[in-house]
Amino acid sequence: MSDPVSTFAQALPYAVSLLAGLEGLGRGGLALNVSLTLCAVPAALVLGVVLGTLRVMKVPVLAGLAMALTEFAKWQPLLLTVFWIHYALPLFLGVRIGLFATAQAALVFYGTVNVAEVYRSGVLSVNRAELEAARLAGLSRLQTAAAVLAPQAMRRMVPALLAVTVSLFKDSSVVFVIGLIELTQTGMIIASRHPDLLPAMYAFMGLGYMAVSLILTRFARSLERRAQARLAGGSRLSSGF
């Protein structure tokens, strides 16, 4: 093996491809992972809250359906979900959605189920007595939900939701099985063209994933700290009554 320093120097020009995708293949590389995640997270948040609400409110039939979806996601590997959507959508709906949309659908499905679970445990963690007290004090159901339930539940959910985001970002690396050229696949293609750069490519790939994961984790920690500080301030306030 040649000396590592010169290998890395040789591999450096390919870093652009790893970040933004190979020339002539459209969007790819780390940018594809990030854009898959950025598109999937808002959709998963909205759908997850809907799904979680159905279960928390025990809406007949729909709650059961939501539970079935959750169980399904718990048993099925993401990879298989990607394949399943890849085959099922064209057959049943007659639509050919692109590869990006297929990957997107699988990630949104996974994210939705996870967000719903986080939301559910966040809502259930709020003290029942406080809710009853608010109702007895004359607040309507909606007011109780908005003023008492939501602020507490949301604060508790923030770290877990960011963890879901990090894991969605990491999960976006499996979409290359249906032919999307994201970071991993870009690195592997470059490595297959230049076998001696392979270790350097893996090091760059690792750095790319790590950078995004670390930024998200840092963000999560700072939010968590801020939420705790606010919670402490809140309790001081309420003990004054």
């Binding site: 991993t184 893996y202 790590m210 994961s213």
Partner: peptide, 11 residues
């Protein structure tokens, strides 16, 4: 924890 599972298998 900051790297996807696929990365380790390929590595």
């Amino acid at each position: 924890r900051s790297l996807p599972g696929v990365f380790w298998l390929l590595a």
